[in-house]
Structure formats: structure tokens, C-alpha cells
């Protein structure tokens, strides 16, 4: 994950704490895996400000079923519906499920 973004997120957590905070991502595949890992257990590449920092933030993907269900229908239809055809939704669900199971 981008080093500047890591630094920015770290400073947000330092400032407002992590209790009421969650992360919602928009990338698929390996990028999703790297981002989830970085924001929960720390930067796996050990290059960024989140190396060795376990933020433990709840992380979701915008196209997960339970997240999609929270977006008002008309907004969803206009903004996200087409991305269903572009990104592999079942893959995103199963990637997240296995990462969450692994803790």
C-alpha cells in the first residue's frame, strides 16, 4: 500500500482513535489482500509507516454484499451497479472471508 497513505491513516488513528473508525476499500485482487493486511496486522512489505503497527481496523470492500446493502438504492444503481460487471464480486467475498477467518 502507498506509503503516504499509510502515514496519513496512521496519523488519523493517532488523532481520533480506532473505536469508531472503519475502512472501506475499492481495489480487487492482490491489492485488496495487501491493503487488508496493512490495515489490520501491519505493512507486510515492512516498508511503510504501518510496518509492525497492528491497527486492527475493521476493513470492508465497497462491493461486499453487506456494504452494498447499506447504500441507498438509487445511489447504488447510479454509481456502483456497473462495477458489478467489471470486478469479480464472488472473488472479493471469498478473499475477504478467508482473510477474516485467518484473523
Amino acid at each position: 500500500m502507498d506509503l503516504e497513505n499509510q502515514a496519513a491513516i496512521k496519523s488519523i488513528v493517532d488523532e481520533i482513535g480506532s473505536e469508531n473508525l472503519m475502512v472501506v476499500l475499492g481495489m480487487p485482487g492482490e491489492g485488496l489482500r495487501l491493503a487488508v493486511e496493512t490495515l489490520t496486522t501491519g505493512d507486510p512489505s515492512w516498508a511503510g509507516p504501518l510496518a509492525g503497527v497492528s491497527l486492527g481496523l475493521p476493513v470492508y470492500h465497497i462491493l461486499e454484499e453487506k456494504v452494498r446493502a447499506q447504500v441507498p438504492e438509487e445511489v447504488y444503481a447510479e454509481k456502483l451497479l456497473m462495477m458489478e460487471m467489471v470486478l469479480d464480486l464472488p472473488q472479493i467475498e471469498s478473499d475477504l472471508a478467508s482473510m477474516r477467518a485467518a484473523g
Binding site: P28, E30, G31, A35, M82, M85, V86
Partner: peptide
């Protein structure tokens, strides 16, 4: 792909197909 970036060309083609 190894860097966590998606397959840019494939994603673009799927978007055109979705259109």
C-alpha cells in the same frame, strides 16, 4: 498483478463490455 494493481487492460475491456 504482483504489486496489488489489477489487470488494467482486462478491467477496461470489462467496463466497455458492461457499457
Amino acid at each position: 498483478l504482483p504489486a496489488g494493481a489489477g489487470d488494467v487492460a482486462a478491467a477496461n475491456y470489462r467496463m466497455l463490455a458492461a457499457l
